[in-house]
């Protein structure tokens, strides 16, 4: 059986009236990439900060590597790499100096540190920017610097708090691949995000949280099995008569229809040939339609089903 690396037990954290974490529990095993998924304000950062003993909490207990985590657990802290949500680097130091500074907080040996820093630089692909000051870096490069500062000392547990916010898709993919590589090299990873695609792409296990509570947990497939949705059919169609929509909603396996913005969304649960049945009906009604596509369930469906709201706003 794999070792438990992190054990969060019944954590309660209040900010005055607001309960940011509400009896939150979570276990992370060695070698996992655990995705902590939740909309803005759901308590992801709060969880991370409690985990690192940066925040005091009202109730609960946190164990890392089998020992209780406290603000003075320096032997535990030594093994953790943290990439904060807000980029925390010195504007006055160059890329290289920044990585060297943060690596030096853990590694005293000069030669070893130099080697580690060089490896981190290579890992995030900042070789050409060593003499740059952070202000001169683009958003994506800055995020990469932030990551390099967090992982240079080769920690066993890496915690990334939304490391890809405001990063273009190309940089994002590079970052995600990097995280998977770190994991392959033996690090356990906690990855928070409100982008479900990212989480689906790299995480071996996912915990979904909302309003400080864990609302679901499991592998991607386990989670998707939790929703009755098996297929979502989307059809672009102008002026859909109400009568036709009613007919569609009573087709077999269909449990929900939506018509919005000239787009018909049909949610199906189980069964086969759902798409053909819907299209057949439209053909019989002699309605013409544009683009048609069908989607397998996403984590958003899971979230939607449990909380009744979407994981994030459309425009994001």
């Amino acid at each position: 059986m794999e070792r438990t690396v992190v054990k969060i037990d019944n954590l309660v954290k209040r900010y005055g009236e607001l309960t940011a974490l509400d009896h939150f529990s979570l276990e992370i095993k060695e070698g996992e990439i655990l995705g902590l998924l939740g909309p803005n304000g759901s308590g992801k950062t709060t969880t991370i900060n409690c985990l690192l003993s940066l925040l005091s909490f009202d109730k609960g207990r946190i164990e890392i590597f089998g020992k209780e985590m406290t603000p003075t657990s320096y032997d535990i802290k030594k093994e953790i790499g943290i990439i904060m949500q807000n980029v925390a680097v010195f504007d006055e130091l160059t890329v290289y100096e920044n990585i060297d500074y943060f690596c030096g907080l853990y590694i005293n040996d000069k030669a070893k540190r130099k080697q580690y820093v060089d490896e981190a630089v290579k890992f995030v692909g900042l070789e050409d920017f060593l003499k740059f000051y952070p202000k001169k870096l683009s958003g994506g490069l800055l995020r990469r610097l932030n990551i390099a500062c967090g992982i240079a000392h080769k920690p066993k547990l890496i915690i990334l708090d939304e490391p890809t916010v405001a990063v273009d898709p190309q940089s994002r993919n590079k970052i995600l691949e990097g995280i998977q590589e770190l994991n392959k090299n033996g690090a356990t990873v906690i990855y928070t995000s409100h982008y479900m695609e990212e989480v689906e792409q790299i995480c071996t296990r996912i915990a979904i949280m909302d309003k400080g509570k864990k609302i679901a947990e499991g592998t991607k497939d386990e989670l998707k099995r939790m929703t009755r949705n098996t297929e979502t059919i989307i059809i672009e169609i102008l002026d859909l008569p109400k009568a036709v929509r009613d007919k569609i909603s009573v087709l077999p396996h269909v449990y929900k229809t939506d018509y919005d913005d000239d787009k018909l969304t049909v949610s199906c649960s189980g069964g086969k040939h759902n798409l053909l049945r819907v299209l057949g009906l439209l053909q019989k009604e002699e309605l013409s339609f544009g683009r048609v596509y069908s989607e397998l369930p996403t984590l958003n469906d899971v979230f939607l089903e449990i909380t009744g709201k979407a994981l994030r706003d459309k425009e994001e």
């Binding site: 690192l52 940066l54 603000p71 003075t72 320096y74 032997d75 802290k77 030594k78 953790i80 943290i82 904060m84 807000n86 925390a88 680097v89 010195f90 504007d91 006055e92 943060f102 907080l105 853990y106 500062c149």
Partner: peptide, 17 residues
Amino acid sequence: TLNRKDIRYRTNCSCVR
């Protein structure tokens, strides 16, 4: 600069007392 909150917190995550 050296007492910037995010830097202090980031440093507090490490083994520096």
